[in-house]
Design a protein around this nucleic acid. Structure first.
Lengths: 342, 342
DNA sequence: CAATCGCTTGGTAGCGCTGTCAATATCGGT
DNA sequence: ACCGATATTGACAGCGCTACCAAGCGATTG
């Protein structure tokens, strides 16, 4: 005998089948597709499984069926509130389903992403959720070759690998600037941190809006590769004021920067919005309850995660979503910090 | 033949072994314990694996070895910044190791936690990280029966299930109040939300400090079961002021509440700290850059996650940590919002 | 020089489940 | 009563890997 005898207390599918008086394969079917059983056997297997406290061995299942029930999720950051909301949506959608999540953090590196992707795909995931549309050419190739539903999240763009859900960062930033212009602001600064591809597209939206209004001026732009923080928002805003002391508004690529800018204004006794309008991005919870309340661009992060997971599940269950690319849009939340100029 | 023939392109351990000119079992050992091979074979297997792009099949490994290389992590919330930091620590510690993480969200329910725990343990995880010390009696029983390293995180207390890493929420809150008392504040309010066990212990710490100073007054306490938010901080603070208009300071069980209280002070044109001192808890990044800067109790969340994961790994590798219970402490960050009363 | 030891290596037999296909039961229609 | 179609069930083999045991081998020892 090659190994020690079977653990006596261990409950395997065979035990359940024997107690139910059916063959193991029938018991197996009960757990995967109960409708295929006759009502009588279904009830017998069910009660046998409950009586024995049977729990399927997922490793054995994965090995025999050559697939897993794991959905891989690749996100660039665990700290960022934005992804926390997306993740919550994903977990909520998968809660109670047979699928579980394998999470990995790319740290905003597409090379890391490629490495993690290969790692994931080698384990034959049931599906994949990946952030953004800027993968390496190799990553794309690998994903196109693989046979599982893939959803790109956080933004929409041309040529999805498979499915896609998000919104246009370009349009969202442009709309934020349009709002400021409509309120009468003219010298609108731009604050950007971490400059990942999506932030870059927000900058493009800003540039487009300002150029259309014939107000574009590179002096109005301050960016850095440093990860975002409230403190950084204050620092960058100070830099911006040094470069362009005559600005009357500032668009921040996220709400942390906006909050930092607000505090910096307070420190300088600049009235918001009278002397300085502020608009953020994402509309985190605190934006609506600061003093003054801060304008922002609301993005539907929870829904993005939730729908992405649901799109994967539906595809796996053969009900492929009618529309593979979903634009969740955004809305400009106009609050005190960008009220009309007096 | 029971199933279609082996996929031609598939690379299995056997292929690697053949190319390397060794037996499959020797190749297997290379991936699990390279030191057990002679230098020559080790190099041959290594280059064969690389040449073929071999990736082990984890399902087969788990089935054959009767264990997985998955560490289960049970946390109460995905949204809370505090857990985001802990998670980051865990992921960082496990990055590059053979272990992966299975995350589940208990939503602050110990019954959910028990359910998830059973689900996890049925899959024989390599280890387990679980939040807090308030598990159900059944959960405890189940965990004590299982043979894998378990780390309770976020707080320390008596009778660990296995290992434990955190700090005393009681002492931390007490220290925050001691600081306010030392600064001359006397009517110190308490703002609490979500009132989970750890927040409850912060309340106990507050009560102890106030009672010792003969300043305890139940009118000073405002709590709610509602999940925390900045907006809620403002609301609760307003409630507190209605109950006890003569307060001169407020201790908030987390930084979001503290920020909300600060904004509410601004709305009411109450000077901070002259008319109202504020102290938060956790010391999130923004506390140091608000205007005024906000005092808080710094907790070592990232380190907690990181060390917890490392404790699990070390135990798995036979180097059991000398000290199974680690108190990471805290520090009261004294900032403008609780400067000495003038 | 035989006995012993430690280190490496390999053979064998599953781990617990499911894909494939065949066999049987059931059923309505003619 | 017969036929084909459909619904249910089961037998078999094997998914890719590792636990267990045994054997080979050179070095060490009395």
């Amino acid at each position: 005998m090659a190994r020690k005898h079977i653990t006596p207390g261990k409950i395997r599918l065979a035990e359940v089948a024997k107690l139910a008086g059916v063959s193991p394969i029938t018991a197996s079917r009960f757990f995967r597709n109960p409708d295929a059983l006759s009502a009588g056997k279904r009830a017998r297997v069910e009660s046998a499984a409950k009586e024995l406290g049977y729990v399927p061995n997922l490793a054995a299942r994965a090995l025999a069926s050559q697939r897993t029930e794991v959905i891989g999720v690749l996100i660039p950051s665990l700290t960022n509130n934005v992804f926390a909301d997306v993740l919550r949506g994903i977990y909520d959608a998968l809660d109670g389903s047979r699928y579980s999540i394998q999470l990995a953090n790319t740290r905003y590196s597409i090379l890391q992403e490629e490495r993690l992707l290969r790692l994931f795909l080698a384990q034959k995931p049931a599906g994949l959720i990946i952030t953004g549309i800027n993968q390496t050419a190799d990553s794309r190739r690998v994903m196109e070759a693989v046979d599982c539903p893939i959803v790109q999240i956080m933004e929409v763009g041309p040529s999805p690998i498979d499915m896609m859900i998000g919104f246009s960062h370009f349009d969202a930033a442009k709309a934020a600037i349009a709002h400021l212009l409509a309120q009468g602001y003219r010298r609108i600064g731009f604050l950007g941190a971490r400059m990942d591809p999506r932030v870059q597209r927000r900058l493009d939206g800003y540039r487009a809006a300002m150029t259309e209004a014939a107000l574009f001026d590179p002096q109005l732009i301050v960016t850095t590769a440093i990860p975002t923080s409230v403190t950084l928002g204050g620092t960058l805003f100070a830099d911006l004021l040094a470069k362009a002391p005559d600005i009357d508004a500032v668009f921040c690529v996220n709400d942390d920067l906006a909050l930092g800018a607000l505090f910096e204004c307070k420190r300088r006794h600049m009235a918001v919005p009278e002397q300085m309008a502020i608009v953020g991005f994402n509309d985190l919870e605190f934006m609506a309850s600061s003093e003054p309340t801060l304008s922002s661009v609301r993005t539907n992060r929870y829904e993005m995660g939730r729908n992405a997971a649901m799109m994967v599940i539906e595809t796996l269950e053969g009900r492929r979503p009618a529309e593979p690319v979903v634009d969740l849009g955004f809305s400009v939340m106009e609050r005190q910090s960008s009220a009309r100029r007096s």
